[in-house]
């Protein structure tokens, strides 16, 4: 790489940061590899998917005819699609709420000084570092209606007279999966929040305490606003991640029973590979992506990002 030369009258810092032309050149140059990578692996396939959504292609690997917006008209009116969309909302936002509450509880706790703090901070993340398939096997066994420990405890503690088939009854399956997913993800979120908590200077709390603010008031007037940057990104990316989760649901219930856990990604997969309707599956994918895009734009537009160093996000 060439050395940056300092022009006359420039401070050294200007030479490196203020020189907009050079900054822009290197800026684009350095970010280019990643952007290029994403264009090839996301943008190109996306274009192809949009194309497929205008065709009536059935089995993967066969030919389809161009049918314009027919798929879109049909899918939007379809009860299965609408139900799956609602389920996706419950899955992402309902699950998000549970995660946030758990994560805050964990983060506030781990932010205290205590013996074993480092150990606790490291190992709380266990459920997140383990492959999904392990989570699925573990919970399927523990929740088994005949020989699972959870039902054993429930029936012996008198919480329910009969075992509950958590994954086999429609009213239980979704809440159960939401909780398992929350259980899986809240530690990661807790660590991000913990990271944010550490940026808040202790003096703020001391000053507030002198002013007579109680713990609740301190939480809402200091902690929450100053955590804004972290919550902003987790609110955005976390939601996008949640919407697109496929493997846990597929490995636990395959969308069942009676479609009770069939969120949009599950519907897409099922439609493409078991329903032999690749065109329709692509249409649902595109609709989901559109929805998430609108969600993101609205989010970025209206949710304050909070003050951070190094830019908005």
């Amino acid at each position: 790489m060439q050395a940056t030369t300092r022009r006359a009258g420039q401070t050294p810092l200007e030479a490196i940061r203020g020189d907009r032309g050079s900054a822009a050149l290197f800026g684009y140059l350095f970010v280019a590899p990643l952007i290029l990578w994403l264009v090839i692996t996301i943008a190109l396939p996306l274009v192809y998917s949009v194309f497929l959504s205008f065709t009536d292609i059935g089995v993967v690997g066969t030919e389809g005819a161009f049918i314009g917006l027919d798929n879109y008209r049909r899918i939007v009116a379809e009860p299965e699609f609408r139900a799956a969309f609602v389920r996706s909302l419950v899955w992402a936002f309902g699950g998000g709420l549970v995660q946030i509450v758990l994560a805050f509880a964990a983060a506030l706790t781990l932010n205290q000084a205590f013996r074993g703090q480092r150990f606790a901070r490291t190992w709380i993340i266990l459920s997140w570092i383990v492959p999904t398939i392990v989570i699925a096997i573990m919970w399927r066994w523990m929740l088994n209606a005949t020989f699972g420990i959870v039902n054993y405890l429930i029936t012996h503690l008198g919480l329910s007279a009969v075992p509950i088939d958590f994954l086999g009854t429609p009213q239980w399956a979704m809440p159960t999966l939401v909780l398992i997913n929350a259980w899986r993800w809240f530690p990661f979120l807790a660590l991000l929040i913990l990271a944010g908590l550490q940026t808040i200077p202790e003096e703020y709390y001391q000053a507030a305490q002198i002013d007579g603010a109680g713990p609740v008031k301190r939480f809402f007037s200091i902690t929450l606003p100053l955590l804004q940057p972290v919550l902003y990104v987790t609110g955005l990316i976390g939601t996008l991640w949640a919407f697109n989760i496929f493997d846990l649901i597929w490995l636990m219930t395959q969308g069942g029973p009676v479609s009770a856990t069939e969120t949009l990604p599950v519907l897409i997969y099922d439609r493409a590979f078991n329903g032999f309707a690749l065109g329709e599956a692509s249409t649902i994918s595109v609709l989901l992506a559109l929805f998430l895009l609108i969600y993101s734009v609205v989010f970025i537009r209206f949710v304050p990002a909070g003050e951070t160093e190094g830019g908005v996000l």
């Binding site: 209606a145 005949t146 075992p163 509950i164 088939d165 086999g168 009854t169 029973p257």
Partner: peptide, 21 residues
Amino acid sequence: SPPGSSSWTWAEPQALLNTGQ
């Protein structure tokens, strides 16, 4: 039929028959 029949795969009935349940 035992509880959990609505989430059975191949394994469960055989396992239960073999354990005498």
